[in-house]
């Protein structure tokens, strides 16, 4: 962990640890207080529910590890949801990040028209969760959608197919939707790229480094804290992906787009198995915890920190 590494570093000059403790807690106090009031209680309650049979309508009944046992022994949909989610995370997220970084690189220089371009490429991300997106995606990839319109005009379509509803393609349209909405990591990359002091590039130019060399020697290393951030957050958001399948496919056809978070929601709010849903949530937390921990652990080797002070 970058930050923790920083903390671990015994820095000279700071030995007024009492003052620092006080200042540290003062600065983080908003979060700490909020954490205790608004988060710890609901989280612990959710943990407690995960050991109960809780149908939302009556008081929870303690059943120990039963929910967890069912999940791993007899729940096929749990396995389906996991595999769909892994497919999604391992395809959509890398594509989205690469795309976001690539486009951000194109848009970092303040040339003419670039502000307009940035806006155009950010547009998809601001319609993401709206009701309109479901209708829109159907207009594009439905049986009567624009894609089929183009294909049939080219004579490539032999029968009506709904790309959203077909079991072989539905997950891919959702992945495409996710990649298409690369605006938020792009924006973060842009901000990160802009933070790299231009003097670095100037001196590299003087040394005769070309574009690719500059990218590898300066841009990438300087951007690693931001890459780390985007990687961690996108992996988390990938595992928790919900809205797309909730409003577009509802997990169908036959669970081909059953995202983990959607399954959890179905169990909790549609089947009224809130206890089971909470157990699912904690298992997801553990899975994501492992991934995040791996990313953070390896980050020591690839994240460059300006503030480490070599």
């Amino acid at each position: 962990m970058v930050n923790i590494q920083t903390v671990k570093d015994k820095r000279k000059g700071i030995n007024k640890s009492g003052y620092n403790n006080l200042a540290g807690y003062a600065f983080i106090s908003p979060w700490l207080i909020g954490f205790i009031i608004f988060t710890v209680f609901p989280m612990l309650l959710a943990l407690y529910f995960s050991f109960t049979e809780y149908d939302v309508l009556s008081t929870p009944k303690w059943i120990g590890l039963e929910n967890y046992r069912n999940m791993f022994t007899s729940d096929d949909r749990f396995r389906t949801a996991l595999s769909v989610t892994f497919q999604y995370v391992f395809t959509a997220i890398p594509l989205r990040l690469i795309f976001a970084l690539f486009i951000a690189m194109l848009f970092v220089k303040n040339r003419k028209l670039v502000p307009l371009y940035r806006t155009i490429y950010y547009l998809p991300s601001i319609i993401g969760g709206s009701v309109a997106v479901a209708v829109m995606w159907r207009q594009l990839f439905g049986a009567d959608g624009a894609l089929n319109g183009v294909l049939s005009a080219l004579g490539l379509l032999d029968k009506q197919i709904s790309w959203i509803g077909n079991p072989d393609t539905s997950l891919w349209t959702l992945i495409l939707l996710a990649v298409w909405q690369f605006g938020s990591p792009m924006l973060i990359f842009l901000a990160g790229l802009k933070q790299i002091p231009s003097s670095y590039y100037e001196s590299a130019s003087i040394d005769g480094a070309n574009g690719i060399q500059q990218f590898v020697k300066i841009t990438l290393p300087m951007l690693t804290p931001i890459i780390l951030f985007n990687l961690v957050m996108q992996v988390i958001s990938g595992f928790m992906a919900f809205t797309e399948s909730y409003i577009i496919t509802q997990g169908g056809p036959f669970d081909r787009t059953l995202f983990y978070a959607l399954y959890l929601f179905q169990q909790g709010f549609q089947f009224y198995n809130m206890g089971y849903a909470c157990a699912l949530a904690w298992v997801l937390l553990l899975i994501m915890g492992v991934f995040t921990a791996i990313i953070f652990k390896t980050s020591n080797y690839w994240v460059y920190s300006e503030s480490k002070g070599e």
Binding site: G24, Y25, F27, W31, L32, A46, I236, L285, G289
Partner: peptide
């Protein structure tokens, strides 16, 4: 700022992002 309990609290903060909001 380097203060006591920082690591644990930072980890706590990351963990709060890992629990699906639905539950």
């Amino acid at each position: 700022i380097k203060f006591v309990g920082q690591r644990v609290l930072f980890a706590c903060m990351i963990i709060t992002m890992l629990l699906p909001s639905q539950v």
